[in-house]
Design a protein around this nucleic acid. Sequence first.
DNA 1: TTGTGTTTTACGACCTCC
DNA 2: GGAGGTCGTAAAACACAA
Length: 224
Amino acid sequence: MDQTVLDSQVYPYTTQPHSQCITINQIDGSSSGEGSKPVKRRRKRRSRGSSATNEEDVATIGGMLRKRKLTDEQMNMLEYSFENEHKLESGRKEKIARELGLDPRQVAVWFQNRRARWKNKKLEEEYAKLKRQHDTVLLGQCHLESQILKLTEQVSEAQNEIRKLSERLVQETSTNSSSSSLSVEANYAPIEFEFSPDTNYSIPFYTMDNNYLQNMEYWDGLFV
DNA sequence: TTGTGTTTTACGACCTCC
DNA sequence: GGAGGTCGTAAAACACAA
């Protein structure tokens, strides 16, 4: 067999699988030292040949078992099949395996791995979507907070204005009261004032009238 | 060339469903 | 109980920067 062709389909797979140097949680529970939590035991990894069902699947080169890498054509067919249906019932598995010249076990494994990749991708997309939504909400929150700040400043300015005017009014009323019998309304046209021109918000104008004067006490209490 | 990170293939453990 | 699923991981293959 042509070496290039062989290499395109199979790759080194050791006859002494690294399962010998197994893993982390393989051993007995005693080594973990963590009492209550159940420890997963990892068995020895089987050598590739033990599950293979045909010769092609366990080609050997230089004493090494070789694991097969799927060809582009096989990959395309599997992808096409996966697009139609992510699950794999046994009849379909056998059929695909036959058509592609693969071990049904290989087809099953490929679908398992493909589903895992698909799931990961979905999770990433979902995460990105949620992050975008979160960022939008944050932006809205910032906007609202800046509006609150602006409005608070405007309220504060308005309160100062009202205080000044009320003081002026009280002072002038007291100096005129002895010399004039005219009412406040007669001497002073209602005083109106606006907030800063850059504001976009419709804030009611405050008009000096009798109601205002009657409520002075109430307002003064608020200003303290 | 080599070190390192990522992808692909494969497997074991465990779970669920019929 | 068996078939087929997920999950976590090993190890080979691959990509790529230094």
